[in-house]
Design a protein around this nucleic acid. Sequence first.
DNA 1: TCACTCCGTTTGCAATTGCAAGCAGCGCCC
DNA 2: GGGCGCTGCTTGCAATTGCAAACGGAGTGA
Lengths: 161, 161
Amino acid sequence: MALPKVGSIGEYIRDQRQQAKISLRQLAEQAGVSNPYLSQIERGLRKPSAEILNQIAKGLRISSQALYVQAGLIEDREPPSDVISAIRADTHLTERQRQVLIDIYESFRKERPGDGQTSQNADPGPSADDEHPLPPELVAALEPYATSNGNGTANQETKEG
Amino acid sequence: MALPKVGSIGEYIRDQRQQAKISLRQLAEQAGVSNPYLSQIERGLRKPSAEILNQIAKGLRISSQALYVQAGLIEDREPPSDVISAIRADTHLTERQRQVLIDIYESFRKERPGDGQTSQNADPGPSADDEHPLPPELVAALEPYATSNGNGTANQETKEG
DNA sequence: TCACTCCGTTTGCAATTGCAAGCAGCGCCC
DNA sequence: GGGCGCTGCTTGCAATTGCAAACGGAGTGA
């Protein structure tokens, strides 16, 4: 298995949901599943069927395949090459958008040249990182979003050791 | 109502199995499922879960995705987002960086690049369109990048190459 | 004819999914 | 203080999955 094994599909779903800043019930509504069941799925108490998974993916507006890969239901046989190639190949983006994404990606890569494993517990105050190649406005706009969500349960860290 | 849809997946499996010239029991053995259940799946009497589907795909040595598409568990118009998969698979990024990149990418996708012009006016309309997962600050900061016309607050030179 | 093997199918049941209803906690308004 | 709406979680329960066992049919050999 590759590294993106986040342990559990539920964790991934919850993470995606919180990123979308929607409640559990909202996602359940959009996905067409019951809220208690979604709760159990997110906490790993239930193993949802592919149909439910597909509906959740639609509710989250994410790729069903990504969800299946996370759930271990699809062999990650399709090597996603690399991010830049994928961005370049995406016909839904404008050239300007591609360039922005690539710039941001490269700046991220420069921040941690050799880091390989998950280190999402980064310092909450990246004030020391004033060496970003990104324009200050963008960085300033990214910081409040990346540091803490002033909404709901701010504890999105993985609680399991 | 369940007859036509699941019938297709069962027919597909049976077709693939017969092309491989193996018996139902053999495939069941290779796939690790019981033969009666496989029989019912092939005749459309049961709707197999994704796990079973995945095992059958392995037993048939075919793509799991092909089977999922047949089962209607993956939208046929899925491929556009390989970028997210690539970002997810990039082990050099921190989790937080992945989230930011994906959010930006998704916000780009939602801007509908082919839809005339981007309505970047000061009318966010939070209640009307809450699909944006990005905070308004971030979207506002990205728009001078995304739009080719840097009119207005063009105080920052873009670093396009 | 009997015995054996393989084929796909049917039957009954344990385990699981997925849901409706209800519960406790929190914030807001009257 | 009470009420309303929202958050997520727990609890039974119907419906379904998926399997072990058993069934009828076809082919082969003694």
